[in-house]
């Protein structure tokens, strides 16, 4: 397993990864509380962006309802914790199960009828909105008033209950992002990963060669949405409050996929790179525009920046940077991105 994962990765890519990981591990020692909160957010988007990328980038399934999977995961573990005192370390199993089941349900309904492309994307939006309204009207879990978790101080490392300092959340997210990276690398090098890319490029050709298209797509949505459910646990316990309006919002879905798109859809490291780039950029925009006291000015520039990136570099930024640094082969980045752009 380790051999297949390392196969084809240039030495300098491994060194670069090791350096980045050490820098991220050491970061909390050197940065202030504000910078740490930005890093936490960046890692959250790196993780969720990668989960999203697994569907669209690997298997070619455009989901715009990522917020539903995260939101369901968040509500599952937060509900268990708040109503029954079940610690999130156990609750996360329900979160992953609920989100994966939701993903599997959407996938099963869609792929059985061969709903693809834009229609699949709209179906995920529809399910996401539907869930938002249902939770909004579900008084047991707080409804539109929101669900609040007991806060027991911001110090310490109670990892079982996910109650503790931001540094703890930072390391939890760092571990999750690293794990997700390894999982994606493993999947890409696996038989399933090749099937996914075959389906992404040409579904009918893949089917004619004996690929079980339905099962492979089901695997993609189920794994990806289950992974998003895990992010929901952190989302709930880091913020300590949940509102259907924000957790299931379409804008939450878009926030999660921005980093991946800017970094490079279908690449392995692109989502991480994109999130680490965009999140501080967004914060810098907030800082720069705060003095203007004009609501909306940040979103305005945000939209302009994203549009500019789409127009100037539609394959994402990472393939270009990876090429310049000689890191091409990390996760078959270059090959995939080129194929994708040639469509």
């Amino acid at each position: 397993m380790i051999e297949t994962m390392l196969a084809g990765a240039p030495r300098r890519a491994l060194v670069a990864l090791a350096l980045l990981l050490s820098a991220l591990v050491a970061a909390p020692l050197f940065v202030n509380a504000y910078a740490l909160s930005v890093l936490i957010l960046a890692l959250y988007y790196a993780y969720t962006g990668q989960a999203w990328n697994m569907m669209i980038g690997f298997a070619g399934l455009l989901s715009l309802g990522e917020a539903m999977f995260v939101g369901l995961g968040a509500y599952a573990s937060a509900g268990l914790f708040q109503k029954f005192g079940v610690p999130p370390v156990l609750g996360l199993f329900l979160s992953v199960a609920v989100s994966a089941a939701a993903g599997a349900a959407v996938g099963w309904l869609a792929f059985r009828f061969d709903i693809n492309g834009v229609y699949f994307a709209l179906l995920t939006i529809a399910f996401s909105e539907f869930t938002r309204i249902l939770v909004d009207n579900w008084a047991y879990l707080g409804g539109s008033e929101g669900l609040f978790l007991h806060v027991s101080g911001l110090a310490g490392w109670d990892i079982v209950n996910l109650r503790g300092s931001p540094v703890m959340f930072y390391y939890v997210l760092l571990a999750m992002t690293s794990g997700m990276f390894l999982l994606c690398r493993y999947l890409l090098a696996s038989r399933l990963g090749y099937y996914w890319r075959a389906i992404r490029e040409d579904q009918d050709a893949a089917r004619s060669l004996g690929v079980d298209v339905f099962a492979c797509k089901m695997a993609a949505v189920t794994i990806s949405s289950g992974a998003a459910g895990l992010a929901g646990v952190v989302y709930a316990f880091y913020y300590n409050n949940l509102f259907p309006e924000t957790a299931f919002a379409l804008s939450h879905s878009i926030d999660m996929l921005l980093g991946a798109v800017v970094g490079g859809v279908g690449t392995l490291f692109g989502p991480i790179f994109g999130a680490l780039l965009l999140t501080p950029l967004g914060e810098a925009l907030t800082a720069a525009t705060d003095g203007l006291r004009l609501p909306g000015v940040k979103q305005f520039f945000w939209g302009v920046v994203v549009a500019a990136i789409v127009l100037a570099r539609p394959t994402g930024l990472w393939p270009m940077i990876a090429g310049a640094l000689g890191l091409d082969k990390v996760g078959l980045d270059k090959v995939d991105a080129d194929e994708k752009s040639g469509r």
């Binding site: 669209i56 492309g117 996929l257 609501p295 994203v306 789409v310």
Partner: peptide
């Protein structure tokens, strides 16, 4: 016109960016 040849998700992103910009503009 400039994104017509791009995959669905890139087109979607441009339109979503436009939507964000417009809402912000109306707000301002």
């Amino acid at each position: 016109e400039r994104v017509a040849h791009l995959p669905d998700h890139m087109q979607f992103l441009l339109m979503a960016a436009l939507a964000t910009t417009l809402t912000a503009a109306w707000l301002m």
